[in-house]
Design a protein around this nucleic acid. Sequence first.
DNA 1: CGTGTAAGGAATTCTGACACG
DNA 2: CGTGTAAGGAATTCTGACACG
Lengths: 85, 85
Amino acid sequence: MKEKVISIGTVRDLTGLTERQIRYYEEKKLVFPTRTAGGARKFSFDDVELLKLIHSKLKDGFHTFELRQQPEKWLHPYEEGSLSR
Amino acid sequence: MKEKVISIGTVRDLTGLTERQIRYYEEKKLVFPTRTAGGARKFSFDDVELLKLIHSKLKDGFHTFELRQQPEKWLHPYEEGSLSR
DNA sequence: CGTGTAAGGAATTCTGACACG
DNA sequence: CGTGTAAGGAATTCTGACACG
């Protein structure tokens, strides 16, 4: 599920996050969408799951810089390998 | 892989087909993308594989109406169930 | 810090039509 | 029949900024 094919509007619908939040998490180096020739972001299904996880961690009180520094510490896939990179 | 999340431009890149061809195959009832609120088509990875198969069949001399009438006759997934509906 | 919003522009997609054959 | 193209419009996405706190 690593193919970057989903545009931000669909990611918004899939995650329930706002485009603002999605772009902010990218700005903070937490997700790495690719870009189309025109500059539009393309995310993978793994990115979608990761975005949900990021948001839940922020709700738990973590800060973006903490999540960026030690992804191994908090990135624990629901299913083994489902979010492997 | 049935989630309809890929826009036509990405499908074009993934299949090598033109948007014209993709829209035509939909018009002929060979693929069934969903639509966003704004009317934009959204395809699944299964649709992407199906579109490639449709195009190869057309290259083999088949016509769209033949493919539509008896999908069981020519729809033989590369891997069991990969294109099941 | 994380998120909302209004602003203006650029890229994307849509439909219906004319064309060829 | 299957596909190309130009046309005009509508929806989508982008960036940088101001705001709050």
